[in-house]
Design a protein around this nucleic acid. Sequence first.
DNA 1: TCGTAGGCTTGACCCAGGACAAGGGCAGGC
DNA 2: GCCTGCCCTTGTCCTGGGTCAAGCCTACGA
Lengths: 243, 243
Amino acid sequence: MSVTSFEANLKHRCSSCSLREICLPLGLDAEEMTKLDDLVKRRRRVFSGQSLFRAGDPLQALAAVRTGFFKIYEVSVSGQEQITGFPMSGELMGLDAISTGTHRGNAVALEDSEVCEIPFTRLEGLLSDLPRLQHQFHKLLSGAITTDHTLVMILGTMTAEFKVAAFLLNLSDRRGQRGEDPSEILLPMSREEIGNYLGLKLETVSRMFSKLRDQNLIETEGRKTFIRNRKALKALCQQGSVT
Amino acid sequence: MSVTSFEANLKHRCSSCSLREICLPLGLDAEEMTKLDDLVKRRRRVFSGQSLFRAGDPLQALAAVRTGFFKIYEVSVSGQEQITGFPMSGELMGLDAISTGTHRGNAVALEDSEVCEIPFTRLEGLLSDLPRLQHQFHKLLSGAITTDHTLVMILGTMTAEFKVAAFLLNLSDRRGQRGEDPSEILLPMSREEIGNYLGLKLETVSRMFSKLRDQNLIETEGRKTFIRNRKALKALCQQGSVT
DNA sequence: TCGTAGGCTTGACCCAGGACAAGGGCAGGC
DNA sequence: GCCTGCCCTTGTCCTGGGTCAAGCCTACGA
């Protein structure tokens, strides 16, 4: 649970990273990539359960997930927690802290993970020199808004069953983007965390998993989940909103 | 309902705009402001009910609300509409379109409004020259994420009564930031639109207004709403989440 | 090997908010 | 002025998902 984590000096380059088509370096040429590499020289390991940053921490660096899985949650004045995202490899964390310079969210690793830290002030300096990097950065910021809108839509219009179906499809699609098998999902988060994210109680999430299983849309082995009928699952999501 | 709207050539300058402390120009010096002014030479009137952009439109320009009120809504594959925001003066619209170059949202004026259009590609060019503008732009993008997270939190954790209370306080605060009386809110949106935004039905919204009125926290005259006991309303929001 | 704890499933019951319906108020058009 | 249509309010009933409770499964440590 401690903030500390071993800091690796492992030689890592954006140019050879398998995530370069998803992450910040997308669209850069070799020379530009080198400049970005100079910034991102710090790679850090965060063990399962550890937090990378907490609400109230000043924003020092954005962090790109290299391997693993995180949850980001915010705590309201009333003490209520709300998970706002489950960033996985290639996704940036901490973007919402730019507006105030202070993190509002808490980032906790859901499994042993590695992140690339990108000092924000230096990044902004580099953006001015590299228009393509600037544009990609804006796309990522904008994409974060889009992602949030999708969640708002799920929370605002969907019933429990469709929320869970949409959640599984989302994870599946993101796996697919990374070249992994999209029909086999090893969920690193608990039923309770899924429920928190989707505005449901853990019992309801569990029931919906069972319901989807009974319809032969998915198969479950504990947290390991297989998508058995992707088409039907998608169709379900599409017709499946509150009237 | 048409897209067209009369395009004004009214001389308008960021430097003399009352919203410059909220909007893009925040933090710029006189010379920088002039450069931004050169970009934002197009001011446009959008009448109540007209749309400024629609889902599927290519992103040409971001738009800052100068006067008036908009709603932004997205439509899911199943045809469900979800309002994702009610931008008011000084707020940027279209930021979520940067990631794909295409608008996902629909922007409709809720009252006769004026917007300043900012051609996006040219803006990005200018950002490279003006680090302060760049930083402010990033803060606005990041702020949009923060705003969305607040909505996610409201949708995910709050009961109907507290959702409505939080909604009113939010509008009130934003009026206050603009130097307007924060305790008098003229709602430009219908109960149904409020409900859509908050994940409630219009009847429920209406009932919650009545409930807050019965507790002497607010007073209502049709859409005109007065906050009578701000402190109690805030306290309500803070203790008021789902257990 | 067994004991224990955390997470998952399932059942029974309940309630906040949705669905449906009736009626009122107000603004715009003639 | 009056008609018409839209929006808002309020009532009644219903249901999806929350609450509470019991039991199971799996991982881990002694």
